[in-house]
Design a protein around this nucleic acid. Structure first.
Lengths: 186, 186
DNA sequence: ACTATAAACTAATTATATTAGTACTGTCAA
DNA sequence: TTGACAGTACTAATATAATTAGTTTATAGT
């Protein structure tokens, strides 16, 4: 069966029924095997969550890289933010795994740190094309991530009760953020 | 003992050990009683989560009201955002309860909807003083909430790996957002 | 053919949520 | 004052989940 397949099945389960639904029993029955058999592939529930976090961060990194390729300034920022939001909406469970649970208990997992570093690169590249470097760029990157993460997670959590086009809200938020960045650079 | 005390104990537990640590067993042993006794106060784990969500939204609403009182425009936006972030940092478990788990499964709990409406009011008031009304205001409110929620949740999740002052990052993000709003109004 | 490994299994233990039914304790009305 | 009732705790029992230990089976490599 292979670890890859097990983790991918767990990710699908997370996307469909929420990260809380990713139990070893649930996953095992999804795969048509018994719960203890999963221990041949992952180190228990904790290990599975680590695998999910890793897979999620890597996938996010790939998407950000693709989105940033060949784009500069506002176009780059919009591309990154759309890719981020797209990932959260398409794979909400896998994305949740990149933020929740595992991260806090293991703040310095080297593999995870490396994957996060890679996901960070395209963001820095876009910000550089924008004229931001060093600490300036880190502040801006935190801002961009906050905006994308905040909007997307509230959206998938059903936090925007009122029936007003979220797409429009997102574009306006990005425009405001980008305009503010331009302002600050002066 | 009273329901109030039980829910408050659960909130403290959530803040100290994370929302995942809020189990009926854990809460019962915290309170020095047996697990089934909790059913005299809340409707099981699901009911407890609902109470937590309600308490969290109400508390957030109060803080936002206080923060917005007597402030207009940028000062109001900064006040709201600081209050939001302060709440997330001081009561991370209680805040998490307002976003996670209960919300999605019961999208139209009337009491929760009412509490959310109340928490929304001070935001609309500040945005009005800012010259934004109707749909404009809703878009802006979503943006502001995304910014505050995004930044604060990433911060408490340990998402800002690098040791660079988060306060500075937050101020810059708010300045960018506020500047962008001013831009858009023209 | 022999062996090592991968990947499944059963059995048993522990933790948690839940339900059902019971006991104690105070308050308040007759 | 007494008796009923509400409130709050309890024990006992059941179901689901995670985990560990130890076992089986098929297959690929020597």
């Amino acid at each position: 069966m292979g670890r890859e397949a097990v983790v991918e099945a767990a990710a699908s389960l997370a996307d469909e029924k929420g990260l809380e639904a990713v139990t070893l029993s649930g996953l095992a029955s999804e795969l048509g095997i018994r719960t203890p058999s999963l221990y041949n592939h992952v180190a228990g529930l904790g290990g599975l969550r680590r695998e999910l976090a890793l897979m999620g961060v890597r996938e996010l990194g790939h998407r950000l890289s693709r989105a940033a390729a060949g784009k500069a300034a506002d176009e780059g920022i919009f591309g990154l933010a759309r890719a981020y939001r797209g990932f959260v909406k398409e794979r909400p469970g896998l994305y949740a795994a990149t933020v929740r649970s595992y991260r806090l208990s293991h703040p310095d997992d080297p593999e995870l740190a490396q994957a996060e570093g890679q996901a960070f690169e395209p963001v820095l590249a876009v910000l550089a094309s924008y004229g931001l470097f060093g600490q300036e760029a880190v502040h801006a990157a935190r801002g961009l991530r906050s905006v994308a993460h905040g909007f997307a997670t509230l959206e998938v959590a059903g936090g925007f009760g009122i029936a007003l086009d979220p797409e429009e809200s997102f574009v306006r938020l990005l425009e405001a953020f980008a305009a503010g960045l331009r302002d600050q650079r002066r």
